[in-house]
Design a protein around this nucleic acid. Structure first.
Lengths: 336, 336
DNA sequence: TTTCTCTACGTAAACGTTTTCGTAAATTTA
DNA sequence: TAAATTTACGAAAACGTTTACGTAGAGAAA
């Protein structure tokens, strides 16, 4: 098998304690023995066993990440940020595909606990009470990304309400008056309601009426964007723009419009949300209100790990409208 | 802190050995004590410490996955398959974003070794000698997904040569005669050369000449699809179809054609490779030769874990042309 | 020189399990 | 009933580290 610290100690004629001290560079040995030991280690190719270390240190240097689906564009870039920062800080990450399934999530939570992870980041899903209880029961730091909860759990997200407010204001400023919205899952208090709120607020602020027939609901996925776009177009014949709550749904809308031979942005403008790769690859390239997904992932592990010491707080990340080619300027309004 | 097996033992008036036996259901206790112990466990909410278990069992029930980028559509669905199967078999997975960086990959390999993972799956990247050496040095099972190597390491992949052969044959059978190809990274012996081989073979088989000006190289990414498409169109004015070595590059080509106001598939047909979500979301929906990415991931962990016992072999996965709307039938050829 | 303080280690316990070995009691067999 | 076997446990070692504690010797301070 592999060599252990004992083998190293023996070969270097020192005790395991000394080897351990050298490995962790604690004081307590001469320069000479250090060199000797290091030499032996290199020679044998010894590598410490992190499991044994974890047992005694009660730290595994690994994080658990729970997300609805790793193959989801949105989640996967968050994951990417998480992974990068974790790597930077010498942590490993275990991924868990919850499939939005409560049972499955609980199983993962249990597995993560048994494997003694040092922290958990929970991405983009609704954070159920059940999860919260499980996590505080295991007394682990958690941080939420792109979601939040009524419990006092730090989160990293953009201010959705403000973000869609800005998005539809952007449309209004360009002369759009009849603006539809494809929202997310109906009734979702985290991912849908605030966005609708932002949409309404923007309209009201400029003195435009809110018409509920101009709001359709999807599930953030491509297919739902298609059907929601259809629904919107069927119910309204004066729409000049549609705000979509995810880039994927925007892509769905684009797809539907293409099928209907409705030109974008000439006949209808589309604006997405997220700024994932799908926005970039869309035809035409999708104007969208971007979230700093990667940064959010990085940030999440930063606050997660800082929490081990002083409690760090939730952070609202900045959003930004990235202009591409799906919104038409009907009439440019003065903006200060 | 958390309860340990000792706490359980004490409270149940048995020894830790008995508790352990019950937990692992080994024989050696009466039904009565079993009930009692289980009751105590439930009551205390005891959960075994997998780290301690790992130390003694020399099994951690976790796998390492190395991939170029988790945010890559391709890799992320493979990962999704890996994760699902791992979960099914009660394994956890640690993800490692190699960024295609050799140094970084080696660091991950070391971390995985220290953390005593039970196996490694290596996705889609070129498997360097250095990696191979490190992995056999740590004497761990590996399996490659969507890549292979000159060493005797099991792999899961489709037969690229055959797959693109079928793809361009598909084009030929529909009357296309001047077919361009956007290949992957120039010179890549795994991901590019066999595909070019397949392309050439298909042309030759039907008696068509191979013209090197009809081959452009990219890097599998969207942007490179744009530039490669431009290159192809600039160099050839008779192209009726382009075979792309990845869906993303196909999306890039689509994007370029859109910009040039060249209609797809009316003026030029496009066929992609992979059948990721981007094919589905493309405008128009992309015809592509699909790889069973998710299944490949699942399969990978199956053979990885089977290897622990009898050596299981590499497997070639089936590919399949999924027809959508980017190839035009110029003239239907008889096909038996 | 004596005492004190470091330095440079080594010994052994501890972390939370699993598992080997041993054994008393229960059960079966003779 | 006696012997043999089986059942139902418990004690303790082991996994590979870290770390508290102890100590011999070197050097400093007195």
């Amino acid at each position: 098998m592999s060599y252990t610290i004992k083998d190293v100690a023996k070969k270097a004629n020192v005790s395991v304690a000394t080897v351990s001290r050298i490995l962790n560079n604690l004081p307590g040995y001469s320069e000479k023995t250090k060199e000797k030991v290091l030499e032996v280690i290199a020679e044998m190719g010894y590598q410490p066993n992190a499991i044994a270390r974890g047992l005694i240190n009660k730290k595994t240097k690994t994080l658990g990440v729970l997300l609805p689906a790793v193959s989801d564009t949105f989640a996967s870039v968050v994951l990417s940020g998480i992974e990068d920062m974790a790597h930077e800080l010498d942590y490993s990450v275990m991924v868990c595909n919850t499939d939005k399934d409560g049972k499955r999530t609980m199983k993962y939570l249990q597995a993560l606990r048994e494997k003694q992870v040092d922290g958990i980041v929970f991405v983009s899903e609704f954070f159920k009470e059940e999860y919260y209880n499980a996590i505080i029961a295991m007394n682990l730091p958690v941080v939420l990304v792109s979601t939040k909860s009524k419990y006092d759990v730090p989160f990293i997200k953009v201010d959705d309400k403000k973000a869609v407010f800005d998005g539809v204001t952007y449309l209004l400023e360009r002369g759009h008056r009849s603006i539809g919205m494809i929202a997310g899952t109906k009734g979702d208090p985290i991912a849908t309601l605030p966005r609708i709120e932002g949409y309404k607020r923007a309209l009201k602020e400029k003195g435009h009426p809110v018409d509920r027939r101009k709001i359709a609901f999807g599930d953030f996925g491509f297919e739902s964007g298609i059907t929601a776009a259809k629904e919107l177009l069927d119910k309204n014949d004066d729409l000049t723009a549609i705000f979509c709550s995810s880039d994927e749904m925007a892509a769905g809308a684009l797809s539907y419009l293409y099928r209907m031979s409705i030109r974008v942005p000439d006949q209808i403008s589309i604006i997405g949300y997220d700024n994932t790769k799908v926005a970039e690859m869309a035809i035409p390239p999708l104007t969208t209100v971007g979230q700093p997904l990667y940064e959010m992932g990085k940030n999440a592990v930063k606050v997660l790990l800082d929490r081990e010491t002083g409690e760090q707080q939730s952070v609202f990340m900045p959003h930004q409208i990235v202009e591409r080619e799906t919104v038409k300027v009907i009439e440019k309004e003065e903006t200060e």
